[in-house]
C-alpha cells in the first residue's frame, strides 16, 4: 500500500549512513593530521568539509520532500525529525574535524608537545562517534545508551588536558602557543563527544519515542 513511501524512508536511512561514514573518516583524518603534523592531510580534511555540507543539504531536501508529500506521523515522523537533528550534529562534527585540521597546520612550526590525555580524548571521541552512528544504523538502543554514558569520560579527560597544558606553560613559556592550540583541539574533541551523545539520544528517541536526558 505504501511501498514508495517505505522506499523513500529507506533511501533517507541510507543517506544518513553515508553521512555517518563521511564524518567518521573526517575525524580519523583530522587525528592523523594532528598527530603526524601532516599538512596535506589537514588540507584534504578542510576541503572535505564541503562534501559533508553538501550531504547535509541533500538529506535536508529528502526530509522536506517526505514531510511535504507524506505528512508523516508516529514512527515515520520520529525518523524524519530525528534525521533533521542528526544532520545538524553530524555537520557540526564535520566542522570540528576541519577546525582540528587547521590547528594541525598552525602547530607545524611550534615546538612538539605530547599529551597522552589528548590522544586518549581523540580515541574516545572517535569511538563514541563510530558507536553512535552504528547504534543508529543497527537500531541498537543499548549501544546508544553506552555512548551517552561514555561522554562523562571525555569530559573528565578535557579537565585533565587543561591542567596538563597549564602546567606545561608554567614550566616553559616556549610551549604557551602550542599548549593553547592543543587546548583548543581538546575543546573541539569534547564538543565532538557532545554531538555524538546527541546522535545517540536522538537514536533512542527515533526508535522508542522516549527522550533520554
Amino acid at each position: 500500500m505504501r511501498s514508495r513511501y517505505d522506499e523513500e524512508l529507506k533511501n533517507l536511512h541510507g543517506a544518513l549512513i553515508d553521512m555517518g561514514a563521511m564524518i567518521e573518516s573526517a575525524i580519523s583524518g583530522a587525528i592523523t593530521a594532528l598527530e603526524n603534523r601532516d599538512i596535506q592531510k589537514a588540507k584534504d580534511i578542510i576541503a572535505y568539509d564541503e562534501d559533508i555540507d553538501a550531504q547535509e543539504r541533500l538529506i535536508e531536501e529528502m526530509c522536506m520532500k517526505l514531510l511535504l508529500r507524506q505528512q508523516p506521523v508516529a514512527r515515520d515522523l520520529r525518523k524524519i525529525s530525528t534525521a533533521f537533528k542528526l544532520i545538524t550534529d553530524m555537520e557540526r562534527i564535520g566542522d570540528h574535524a576541519a577546525d582540528i585540521s587547521e590547528l594541525a597546520i598552525m602547530l607545524r612550526d611550534l615546538p612538539q608537545m605530547n599529551s597522552n590525555s589528548l590522544r586518549e580524548m581523540a580515541v574516545q571521541t572517535s569511538s563514541m562517534l563510530i558507536s553512535s552512528v552504528e547504534a543508529y544504523v543497527e537500531q541498537d538502543e543499548e549501544k546508544a545508551r553506552a555512548v551517552i554514558r561514555q561522554d562523562d569520560v571525555v569530559d573528565d579527560l578535557f579537565v585533565t588536558v587543561k591542567s596538563e597544558m597549564i602546567e606545561a606553560i608554567r614550566q616553559n613559556s616556549d610551549f604557551s602557543e602550542a599548549a593553547a592550540d592543543l587546548l583548543m583541539a581538546a575543546k573541539y574533541f569534547e564538543r565532538i563527544g557532545d554531538h555524538a551523545t546527541n546522535i545517540a539520544e536522538w537514536t533512542v528517541y527515533a526508535f522508542t519515542g522516549r527522550h533520554e536526558d
Binding site: 500500500m1 505504501r2 513511501y5 508523516p72 506521523v73 508516529a74 514512527r75 515515520d76
Partner: peptide, 10 residues
C-alpha cells in the same frame, strides 16, 4: 495497531 493505522499500513 494504532501505529499501523495512522501511518497508512492498513
Amino acid at each position: 495497531r494504532t501505529e499501523d493505522y495512522i501511518t497508512g499500513r492498513f
